[in-house]
Every structure is written in structure tokens, then in C-alpha cells.
Write a protein that binds this DNA or RNA. Structure first.
Length: 434
RNA sequence: GCGGACGUAGCUCAGUUAGGUAGAGCGUCGGGUUGUGGUCCCGAAUGUCGUGGGUUCGAGCCCCAUCGUUCGCCCCA
């Protein structure tokens, strides 16, 4: 039985063309995030299991987290998300950091589950967090940043929708307006999260099952349905409309409109899975009706840093996974075909490997990325090779060229070929970089 | 963890109701004379038909198991 060449289930190999694309994704993310003044941090892929026990639902720990016991008997987890790690880091230096912190990272994360479209066992995720700002300006900046990343990927605003909601508002809605118990609110919250996957009839049946007979008699089900289906904050029932969260959401929407972000919608059914969100949550959806799925999202979690025994730090952030982003860009034809890191391919004409060394070293010394063909095959084959590797230029080196100090530079995309000195060739290739 | 679909050359796939040395396109390699690709022509290599077992005179085609891929459910960053 030979060894299998397949990568581990739900994990990907990145062959050079794949890695090139991934580098493009990350480079674009980094460019935008750093333009907003965010700094990169990193943390270990292994964390103590208890880091995830306090804050997340039990589900993640029991079923979706890779865990093992190390040789010292410690319970270890492979990180399923970055937020606990970054909260830990902030808490550890709570007193000496200068706020606000604008931090980002692109970690690889692991979850143990059956792979499906857009959800693998290992994925990379851009994590952006803003620590230390309570004001709504933080929400505005973070959502604007998320939008700018998609803009940088050349997405049109008609291709995605930003939905926002407030956990505070939803909680107040359930406990104050509907008078539900804490347990009922939690169960209902999970149900609302799945609302768009079911019919209205199914949803109201499941909702009724959560209510007590007397609650059902008070017509809570219809109150619930009427409010949840509202598309505009102004249509909310008066008792809810008076809630402070409504004016905050309105202000946030205004701020975003002012930044030209008009594809933003209030969605009262937007929940997001994690319990640690405390206030505003948002999620970006693919607007394509064929692929109307959630791409990524985030929200405010003011309580996490405080779990480490230090004074709490208000925080808002989001995570953007590479798999869903890739699917989005691919389905909207927004993926470029990045060129090779190798800038020129040296085609050796005849048996000149040794004589050509000086020239090749000169090129490399001028800061060019040069690959030399070592096959000894005829020039036609060497060119084909360069084309397949998506290298932009070929430089021909034969005895005649070495003697004259002039070389043919061929643009492999256009087929255009010119004969120049080495210096001129170097500057032409460098001009092509931008 | 649950359900559906799929698994044939490097890739995409065709293989009729089970029967003869298992096919195509693309790709790869070589050639079309000695310094030039993406077009054209000629030629070549490559598969224990995912794996294991069963039914049968005979299985790529049927049955079971297993591994993997994929879509969905559960769950969700």
C-alpha cells in the first residue's frame, strides 16, 4: 500500500499558483488594513484549552476544536479562532498598551467538522480588532474598513450587502418587550439565527414551542413575527423604537452613508453565533441571489478582555475567511491571475552555462528575480517552459550575445522582442514591475 | 454526528442491458535539420477503472465495507 498523496481532510496544499493567489489576497488585505493604521501581531497556533472554555459555546469545545494532551499532561487546543488569543494578549499588557489599539493578524485556524462549500477544517482568516473605543466611531471605522477591503478587490457595492443589528436591541426586545425569560431568549435567539433557512410557518411553529401557554394567549408570536420582518428601523413598534440602540443604529447608518456606503441594511434577525457579542453586530452577504450566503462579519465584544481579571476594554472587530472570500471573488470574476515572482527566465542558447554565469549574477545583483533554464533543451522548449510558469520575460544568452554584450529580451505576453544592453534590460524589467 | 451524489490516464470526462489486448480531448515528451513559444502536421509514454471483500463461467459496470471528494443538515469563526 503506497503512501497517500492527499492532504489531510479539509486542509489544502498550496501549489505555487495557489500560493501566489493566496499571497495576492493577503497582500491586498494587508495593504488596506495598514492604510487604516492597523498593526500586525501574531500568536501561537496552540493554546491552553481553557482559553476557549470560558467564552465560547460548549459546542465549539466539545465537537469542533482539535484538542490533545501534551507530554506534560496539559490540555491543549489548536486555535479555532483568533479572538481569545488576541484578547489574552491585550489583557496581559493591559496597563502598558497605548489605546486605541488597531491590530490585525492573518492566522490559520482549525475546526473539526465535515468539510463543505466555504467551510474547511483549516482556513486563514484576516482578524481586525479595534480595542479601547466605546464610541460608535469604532463601529464606523471597522465596517468602513471591511468595505474598503472589498472595494480594493474591485467588488462593486451592488455585489454585496452589509447587514447590521444590535444584540442589545434584540435582548431588550425579547426580555422587555416580549417578556421572555433568559432561557427562552437564548433558545429563541438560536432560532432567529436560522430563520432565513425555514418557512414562516415552520419558524412560528418552532417559536410557539418555546413559549408558555399563557404567553401564546397574549399573542406574542405575532408580535414577534411582525417585528422581526421589519426592514426599516422606523417601522419598529414604538416600545422598541424608543430603545437607545435604535438611535445608535441610525447614527451608524448615517455615518456609513456619509462614507458612501449605501449598501447597508438593518436586519433584526441577524444574530451571529457567538455569545460574546455584546452590542452591534454586522455581517456581509453576497448579493448574488444564486449564492446568497454570509461571507464574513463581526461585532462588538466588550467583555472578553475582562475575563482575564483585568479591567475590561471595549472592543470591536471582524474576521474575514479566505475560503469564503475566494469563492466570492471567483464567482464574480474578480480573481486576477498573478504573475510569477520570477521576473525573467534565462534561455541558454547552446552550451554556455559557465560563460553565462557572470551575466546572470549581474542581473541578480541588480535585484531581479532570475531563473535559469538548466534543461539543455532547444530554445523553443525553454520558452514554453517560461510561459507555463507565467514568467513575464525571457532573456536569451548565447555565445554571440556574450561577445557583443547585447541580449534579446522577449516579452512573453506580447511576443515583442528587443535587443539591448544588460543595463537597459534591467531597467525595462523594473519598469514593468508596477 | 446525519442524509444525498460522485470516485476510470496529469486534467476534464466517455465507456450502452456485466463478455475480447479499457477510450477521447486537453496536457506531457520527442520530431517537422542546427538561436525563439502560444497555430498546424507526425510520433510516443502513461491507467493493477480509489481500496478491500463478495456474487458470477466472466465486473469499470451488480452487492457490502472502507477511504476520499462534493452538496446539504447540525453547528458556526
Amino acid at each position: 500500500m503506497p503512501l497517500s498523496t492527499q492532504p489531510y481532510k479539509g486542509a489544502r496544499d498550496f501549489y505555487p499558483p495557489d500560493k501566489r493567489l493566496q499571497k495576492y489576497l493577503f497582500k491586498t488585505m494587508r495593504k488596506v488594513v495598514e492604510r487604516f493604521g492597523y498593526e500586525e501581531y501574531d500568536a501561537p497556533i496552540l493554546e491552553s484549552l481553557e482559553l476557549y472554555l470560558a467564552k465560547t459555546g460548549d459546542e465549539i469545545i466539545n465537537e469542533q476544536t482539535y484538542t490533545f494532551t501534551d507530554r506534560g499532561g496539559r490540555q491543549i487546543a489548536i486555535r479555532p479562532e483568533m479572538t481569545p488569543s488576541v484578547s489574552r494578549m491585550v489583557a496581559a499588557q493591559r496597563q502598558q498598551l497605548t489605546y486605541p489599539l488597531r491590530w490585525y493578524s492573518i492566522p490559520n485556524l482549525w475546526r473539526y467538522e465535515r468539510p463543505q462549500r466555504g467551510r474547511l477544517r483549516e482556513h486563514w482568516q484576516l482578524n481586525v480588532d479595534l480595542f479601547g473605543i466605546e464610541e460608535l466611531t469604532a463601529e464606523h471605522e471597522i465596517i468602513q474598513l471591511a468595505d474598503t477591503i472589498l472595494q480594493e478587490f474591485k467588488a462593486k457595492r451592488s455585489q454585496y450587502t452589509i447587514k447590521i443589528n444590535s444584540r442589545k436591541l434584540t435582548n431588550s426586545f425579547m426580555t422587555d418587550y416580549l417578556n421572555l425569560s433568559t432561557v427562552q431568549s437564548q433558545t429563541l435567539g438560536k432560532l432567529i439565527d436560522r430563520m432565513h433557512k425555514m418557512t414562516m410557518a415552520e419558524f412560528s411553529a418552532d417559536a410557539e414551542a418555546i413559549l408558555s401557554p399563557s404567553q401564546r394567549d397574549k399573542g406574542i408570536t405575532s408580535k414577534l413575527l411582525d417585528s422581526l420582518t421589519v426592514k426599516d428601523l422606523n417601522e419598529l413598534p414604538d416600545e422598541i423604537y424608543r430603545n437607545n440602540s435604535v438611535s445608535e443604529l441610525k447614527r451608524l447608518i448615517n455615518l456609513l452613508h456619509g462614507s458612501d456606503i449605501k449598501n447597508i441594511e438593518f436586519d433584526f434577525t441577524l444574530m451571529r453565533g457567538f455569545d460574546y457579542y455584546t452590542d452591534i453586530v454586522f455581517e456581509i452577504f453576497d448579493a448574488d441571489p444564486e449564492n446568497n450566503r454570509s461571507m464574513f462579519g463581526g461585532g462588538r465584544f466588550d467583555g472578553l478582555v475582562g475575563l482575564f481579571g483585568v479591567e475590561p476594554v471595549p472592543t470591536i472587530g471582524f474576521g474575514m475567511g479566505d475560503v469564503t472570500l475566494f469563492n466570492f471573488l471567483e464567482s464574480h470574476n474578480l480573481l486576477p491571475k498573478p504573475k510569477s515572482e520570477t521576473e525573467a527566465y534565462v534561455v541558454l542558447v547552446g552550451d554556455v552555462y559557465e560563460q553565462a554565469q557572470k551575466t546572470i549574477n549581474l542581473l541578480r545583483g541588480m535585484d531581479l528575480n532570475i531563473a535559469v533554464d538548466l534543461s539543455g533543451r532547444k530554445p523553443a522548449s525553454q520558452i514554453k517552459n517560461a510561459v507555463k510558469k507565467e514568467i513575464a520575460y525571457a532573456i536569451f544568452i548565447g555565445e554571440k550575445d556574450l561577445a557583443e554584450g547585447q541580449f534579446n529580451l522577449k516579452n512573453l505576453a506580447t511576443g515583442n522582442e528587443e535587443r539591448h544592453s544588460l543595463e537597459r534590460i534591467v531597467s525595462m524589467i523594473k519598469d514593468h514591475r508596477k
